[in-house]
């Protein structure tokens, strides 16, 4: 209790003593956290888009011409038991024919057809786009199935794209975090440098390393938190303003809803700020502590 009180007092004294330095650190953290924040918003939306596109992909299983619809229930439950399957819907050949007619609407005369050439089919939705191919092959073995189609090419290409986006995103994110840490630790180093004589004196009178370090670390955490809070405010407010505008001009865009994105983004940014402040101070103080 006494120690915590002592450390907090040291932090307050330091901040009051060099407010400009604190402003510099806070601003640095804020700008960098903001960049990370906007980047995360972008990534979230890209992955949302990928998920949206992937949800359109499904396995279509065409049933054998002699399929007896009485067995539909049993077939459906067998398909549902396959791993990765989310749902199954039955498309009768009549429905398919109507659908086809509508799509072709006057462009081709279907009136010449005396009978419906289409088979009954099952449309199978999968849980994850990655499962599409696996499920497609499994469905073949279920029985009563003539042919399976699952847009292998499209699926593969989209998955590859998704992977690339994710990898690039991760690399960029890591680079951003590393540079954030470097810049912040350098800024904090200035504040520590200004007090290197104090650190010497503290060591001289027998202060343990952690005793000298903690006020600096707390100061770093505090500055990181303040900077990150400002950044989080800017990011979330501008995203809240931006989304309705986007939706009003391009309504079908699958934007990540602010209500689902921000509740994890803001705490994440705060955590990041605190962490960067802590590590930045740690790195800086250690340069002046003889370890």
């Amino acid at each position: 209790m006494g120690l915590a009180h002592y450390f907090l007092r040291e932090v307050l004294v330091n901040v009051r003593r060099s407010p400009l330095m604190s402003v510099a650190s806070v601003t640095t953290v804020m700008v960098l956290t903001m960049i990370v924040g906007f980047f995360l918003v972008l990534m979230a939306n890209l992955s949302n888009l990928a998920r949206d596109l992937a949800s359109d992909l499904k396995v279509v299983a065409y049933l054998q011409a002699d399929f007896n619809r009485d067995q539909l229930g049993e077939l459906r439950s067998r398909v549902l038991k396959l791993p990765g399957v989310e749902g199954v819907s039955f498309v009768s050949r009549e429905q398919a024919f109507e659908h086809l007619k509508k799509r072709m609407n006057n462009r081709i005369q279907l009136g010449d057809l005396t009978h419906n050439p289409l088979p009954d089919a099952l449309e199978i939705r999968v849980r994850r786009a990655e499962d599409l191919e696996k499920v497609g092959h499994k469905v073949k073995g279920v029985g009563s199935i003539e042919k399976v189609r699952f847009g292998e090419d499209v699926a593969r290409r989209m998955l590859a794209l998704n992977r690339i986006v994710r990898t690039v995103g991760l690399v960029v994110l890591i680079l951003l975090l590393v540079s954030t840490l470097l810049v912040v630790s350098n800024t904090i180093r200035l504040t520590v440098y200004a007090r290197r004589r104090d650190i010497e004196v503290m060591q001289l009178v027998g202060a343990a390393g952690w005793f000298i370090r903690w006020p600096f670390l707390l100061e770093g955490i505090l500055q990181g938190l303040v900077g990150a809070a400002l950044a989080a405010t800017v990011v979330s407010e501008s995203y809240r303003l931006l989304v309705p505008q986007l939706l009003s001009s391009v309504s079908f865009l699958p934007v990540a809803a602010p209500e689902s994105l921000l509740p994890w983004l803001c705490p994440g940014l705060l955590l990041l700020g605190a962490l960067v402040g802590l590590l930045g101070s740690w790195i800086s103080v250690n340069r002046f502590l003889k370890v």
Binding site: Q203, L204, V205, G206, A207, A208, G209, V291
Partner: peptide
């Protein structure tokens, strides 16, 4: 290293 502070006191 960690014992130096107690000497300094």
């Amino acid at each position: 290293r960690s014992e130096v502070p107690s000497l300094r006191r």
